[in-house]
């Protein structure tokens, strides 16, 4: 599964993406592509521009130049809600759930793009709107089962522990039934057990559903084990790309993380560049 395989079934292509904020270059001519069913990791020191890449893909940031294609369709200038409907799901580095709503309502909100009933039908509720809503509820319950959060369904999200909130956020993104999932540090701040759970979900999503994903994560052990391919960024530039084993020993990557004189990075546990 190396990068030398021919590009069949590309889900996402990013071409020469450049983003700058008033003179500060956050992304500098970045190009990469994501294949169907692939799990792509983006690593790099703090401030390398990883989250900015996700923000460009889902439409929060407007790059000064470059193009983004999703499944052959250019989405560079589409607003975020349109991209969501085209199938881009995402989780956030700092959880962005709806705090006053229950876990169930949060995940239900992921189904909104698939619901059709309008204001009048919704206000009358009985009949088509109710049947539609119940159908989506059943889908949401499948996701709740998958993430093993049945007990927390009816709790307000703000009252749930951090690890559970991360799960709910993943559930909400999955409820959209996305064609591409962007995960921004899904395991940050989690215990080893919770990380193992999350890794299990991500693997299952890839193996069983073949869902293409882009993963940003600072836990090198996790990202080296999970990803098919890695991109390493530094100061907005791609400095290396390839399978994890290759990236691990790439001279530029080691330099970006540790400076000039070090020779080893990653491998077993923490590889440096760990964020709080």
């Amino acid at each position: 599964m190396g990068p030398e395989l021919p590009l069949v079934d590309t889900v996402l292509t990013v071409e020469r993406l450049t983003l700058s904020f008033a003179g500060l270059v956050a992304i500098d001519g970045l190009s990469f592509s994501l294949r169907a069913g692939e799990l792509l990791g983006i690593i790099g020191p703090n401030g390398a521009g990883k989250t900015s890449v996700l923000n460009c893909i889902n439409g929060f940031y407007h790059p000064q130049s470059g193009r983004i294609h999703l499944g052959g369709r250019e989405i560079t200038h589409q607003p975020p809600h349109v991209r969501a409907r085209l199938g881009i799901g995402r989780t956030f580095q700092n959880i962005a759930l709806y705090p006053a709503m229950s876990a169930l309502a949060n995940i239900m909100s992921g189904r909104l793009i698939h619901m059709r009933s309008g204001v009048l039908a919704g206000g009358l509720y009985w009949g088509p709107a109710e049947r539609e809503f119940l159908r989506h509820r059943a889908r949401v319950e499948e996701i709740i089962d998958f993430l093993e959060i049945e007990a927390h369904r009816n709790h307000r999200v703000a009252e749930l522990p951090y690890g559970i909130q991360k799960k709910v956020e993943l559930g909400r993104a999955l409820a959209m039934a996305p064609g591409l999932l962007l995960l921004d540090e899904p395991m940050a701040g989690m215990s080893a057990e919770e990380k193992a759970d999350m890794a299990r979900y991500i693997l299952e999503l890839r193996e069983v559903r073949g869902l293409p994903m882009i993963l940003i994560e600072h836990d090198m052990g996790v990202i080296m084990d999970l990803c098919d391919r890695l991109i390493c960024m530094d100061y907005g530039k791609k400095i290396a790309e390839g399978p994890p084993q290759e990236i691990q020993h790439h001279a530029d990557v080691i330099r970006a993380y540790l400076g000039e004189d070090h020779a080893v990075v990653g491998g077993g546990g923490r590889g440096g560049g760990e964020e709080a």
Partner: peptide, 15 residues
């Protein structure tokens, strides 16, 4: 309610 609680997340969910 999604718009009320966190508008940027609501956008990402297609609202």
């Amino acid at each position: 309610m999604a718009v009320r609680d966190r508008d940027y997340a609501a956008q990402v969910l297609g609202i």
